[in-house]
Design a protein around this nucleic acid. Sequence first.
RNA 1: GCCCGGGUGGUGGAAUGGCAGACACGGCCGCCUUAAAAGCGGCUGCUGAGAGGCGUGCGGGUUCGAUUCCCGCCCCGGGCACCA
Length: 946
Amino acid sequence: MSEATDTMAVEPASGAGDVPPFRYTAAMANEIEARWQDFWADNGTFHSPNPSGPLADPGHPRYGAEKLYVLDMFPYPSGAGLHVGHPLGYIGTDSYARYQRMVGRNVLHTMGFDAFGLPAEQYAVQTGQHPRATTEANIERYRSQLRRLGLAHDDRRSVATIDVGFYRWTQWIFLQVFNSWYDTDANRARPIADLIAAYADGSRPTPDGRRWADLSEIERRTIIDDHRLAYVAEAPVNWCPGLGTALADAEVTADGRSERGNFPVFKRHLRQWMMRITAYADRLLADLDRLDWPEKVRTMQRNWIGRSVGAHVDFAFDGGTIRVFTTRPDTLFGATYLVLAPEHAAVDALVAAAWPAGTVAAWTGGHATPVEAVASYRRFAAGKSDVERQSDAKEKTGVFIGAYATNPVTGAGIPVFIADYVLAGYGTGAIMGVPGQDERDWEFAEVFELPIIRTVRPPADFAGRAYTGDGPAINSAFLDGLGIADAKAKISEWLTAEGHGTDAITYRLRDWLFSRQRYWGEPFPIVYDDTGLPIALPESMLPVELPEIDDFSPRTFAPDDAASNPETPLSRATDWVQVTLDLGDGPKRYTRETNTMPNWAGSCWYELRYLDPDDDKAFVDPDSERYWMGPRRPGDVGGVDLYVGGVEHAVLHLLYARFWHKVLFDLGHVSSEEPYRQLYNQGYIQAYAYTDARGVYVPADEVVESAQGGYRYRDQPVTREYGKMGKSLRNVVTPEDMCSAYGADTFRVYEMSMGPLDVSRPWDTRAVVGSQRFLQRLWRLVVDENTGQTRVVDSPADDESRRLLHRVIDGVRTDMDGIRMNTAIAKLIELTNRATVVSTVGTPREIAEPLVLMTAPFAPHLAEELWHRLGHDETITYASFPVADPALLVDATVTYPVQVNGKVRGRVEVAADAAEETVRAAALAEVADHLGDREPRKVIVVAGRM
RNA sequence: GCCCGGGUGGUGGAAUGGCAGACACGGCCGCCUUAAAAGCGGCUGCUGAGAGGCGUGCGGGUUCGAUUCCCGCCCCGGGCACCA
């Protein structure tokens, strides 16, 4: 993969001068850190016990305790290596998890790798190096980089999606999905065997009404396959020649390019594996309300699912009906034309042989016949790229197809058009044009000179065109006078009664395109017989291992040839593809599926595998799943207690994982309804980059701020920009740089103190020294820098320090519970500074010990070292977090600020339990000068505050 | 255009109806040092000689009191976008 990242030089934290021999320097920190990392690894300090099975440990200090499952979004181990931004979330979850262990919880926290995917494969195409070799090397490098940070992970539970022992179960879950169907009556997935039984015993009629027994085997299999939650379909897909694969809708950006690699994407019809995520649209939407997730992410998922409530309305024409979807059935009296998507299947049947008498010239597009006009317009629409389609959004185009349909409520004949502003993939691919109440329809009506009938009375001052607000219905016969909601209800009743339509709900969400024409992914556990229909392999034949091949390159195909499909890399492994298997009816020849799964597959369920990583009998042990992820109380969705990662996965990973989890829940394989109960999006660490006069990036660490303002590099002015950290921007700082220059603990403390975890902020290497000073002072409170002896004394602390200590304990607990590491650290610094000031002969143990304990989540190596120097033999990991004494949280006296007209004019100190009268008198005396001879109109005393 | 966030010193940020700027960086001054670094201590929102005045994007409002709540704008970041 790529070369080791260029890194910026970092000045040593301390000079080479004569520092005291036992000062907490970077060298000292590195020695301490390496020693404790070895100790933790040797002792399995961070192993967390399961309730049963091989990872159960009744002797563990947290065995059977209240559980907490903390999860990071696992990384793709790229060749570029880590910069200081990557571990931010990991350090956050580690600090949180370490704190939760100290308050008594059994915490599960580990780390894995999402290791299938395109970058390793692209690299393989270029170099011929096997993706497994590069990926595994990258994983090893990530592991060692992360180890230096002292993350308290249970490494027994670490998994990578490329491990055969892992993807075997990804394939197993695929089989569960394949072998189930969605029962809309029960509103859940059920085993496909139930569906077959229902057809067989006649309780469920076949699509064409024939008896099940009378159907051929192929007919039966086709009917069943059409119900599966994983199915093969010929569908318009996002074909990306640059990547040589089809992509899911969510992997395509708004401007029609691939999210990975930014290659153009085209719509093509291909036979592909799909997942019926649309069956879960309602539940995926409804259960968002039961999740403790950022509103932003829930909104994004809501928009992606795109539920619209409305009605289907049928418009009759000679020989059939056209069904449209509308959210405004109340405006039906204003529907003066219909528009179909150019690709709509009914167009060919509808299109007239000749223009009807009286056809407006503008409707024909200048063509002699409707057939010609349709063909021409379809070519025009299909030739537009997504980008063009968007930029042309305001100019309505279309063509009349020479046919009329009947508005069911007015009986009027209305013309039928095709136009590309109607999308084939949404609703029914057809709309009724209501220009009076829809801006797009108004624009279209203006271009084609179509009648405009208002059916909602706009306010008197309304100056616009289409009116989309509420108001009384007009020109609508029996709806007249009703508001939108009432009119909807009434027209819906009428449509149903007259047989012209029904209430309907439509989603923007499409089924999930699940196959990729690439090598580096999970093979499908699917073979085909000579019918061409898919057959699931039995569980006993798992795993289906990736075959070894030499040529990883995707081959493009003839895009104009509708029958051609892309050649997949696996199809070249002919010995693997053509296989003889005994699937219960004797050995036969089969052809394997040669697509692979998208890299989202592994991340759809990895949190479950952490619970029981080595199980070769089940994907997860039910007892462990119930303990770590089960509902806490009736009605709770269950799931991981805290899931931390970037917001970029708001719809992709997080929606797919919810979908799989719900299938597993329906089939009884998990007790939790949702995978991630609480989601937290950490911010990004960003960085400044600098360009010179030529626009070339200069090393950011050599840029100085000039006295006149502005920035200079080697005396030349440079321009500062703010954004990502990246090799090409010459502003990368790595965790290794920080560990070498300051130690991992300083780096951790700095990242946690920069600001709230969910906010993005700029990296500032200069500021790291503040965190080091804090840890040096803490060290100095316990250890004499000149002798190395401990300088903690057993004499009591002064009263003020003690009160501060207990306020800090109380505040740090509140902050940590709320994931506010930055303010927790500020309080610890405050206490450390106070202790430093009063410490002359030594530091009172009653201050030093709680301070070390409270610092342990952030600077675990230093805390562990000091804890042992304070005379403790056991690891600090499971030591009890300090508890504040409530009696010390209230002071004997209170200083009241005194305000006059909202301005602070003085302050008075009174006893905390002083009566209001006393406070009032003291306050008035204090501000007597300000009042002069004026009488206060009103005096307000807020007990304890003001 | 619509939907989410957000706007506080030179910088990162703190305070969620009650002393604006905790904590940290940077800066200035001092101690220590032959010197420098490190360390330690002090000062550091703006303005003013001072008393004081002003100050949380802008303009209103509620309140004894608003960074915080309400209304209307402006700007920045993110998401969605011909979805009927």
